[in-house]
Design a protein around this nucleic acid. Sequence first.
DNA 1: TGCGTACTTGGCCAAACCGCCAAATAGTGT
DNA 2: ACACTATTTGGCGGTTTGGCCAAGTACGCA
Lengths: 108, 108
Amino acid sequence: MDTQTQAFFEARAQIMKSLAHPTRLFMVDELSRGERCVCELTEMVGVDMSTVSKHLSLLKSAGIVADEKRGMQVYYRLKTPCVLRFFDCVGEVMIQKMQELTHLTSGR
Amino acid sequence: MDTQTQAFFEARAQIMKSLAHPTRLFMVDELSRGERCVCELTEMVGVDMSTVSKHLSLLKSAGIVADEKRGMQVYYRLKTPCVLRFFDCVGEVMIQKMQELTHLTSGR
DNA sequence: TGCGTACTTGGCCAAACCGCCAAATAGTGT
DNA sequence: ACACTATTTGGCGGTTTGGCCAAGTACGCA
């Protein structure tokens, strides 16, 4: 694997990584229904605000979300809504896994 | 965030995590062009075969690939090709990031 | 049966990740 | 200027991840 190919998949991986955490996935899901400020998200996920802030800045540097300060709050919104399409496929994967489990337990 | 919601996003995250590594992304890409045995992939990525094997078993337990022993080799194939659709969007994200960089450097 | 090839598993170590707390920053209102 | 609120940043400890090496397993073939 040459250096350029490696760099390409490295870049791809960084974006995937930003979506590889339950809290961040929850926030993306929430943001798919409209913009939210850090404090709102903090209350919903139930961890320290500093943690939420770090998750958001990670998503931001990955290019998934954008932020805008308005009044006293910072509002985050989904910048590339196409990520939502991911989850249709993720759903398919989950369904397939469950079906295999069913086959196993129904004796085969 | 209640327990059930948490479990849901945890499951989703596990699948995303399995795709959040350059080597695994490279292998998925390669498998999109047909099945490959462990030894072929090992040679392509250029790390230890044990490492490749672990990456593959991770992808397998995530439900992304399936394996089949045939002759002396174990062949892996893409089980849920829909993951490839992810990367269209990942491409969009990357392009947007590059455009922003261009705007910055062209003085604004 | 015994050898070689293909692969997997276990163990170890270094690096990355995630949570919290505390401190810094920035903007609001008095 | 001062206090207050919303958010970010720095730093620390515990857990997870990713690589290699060595050992184990499984199968094909002489």
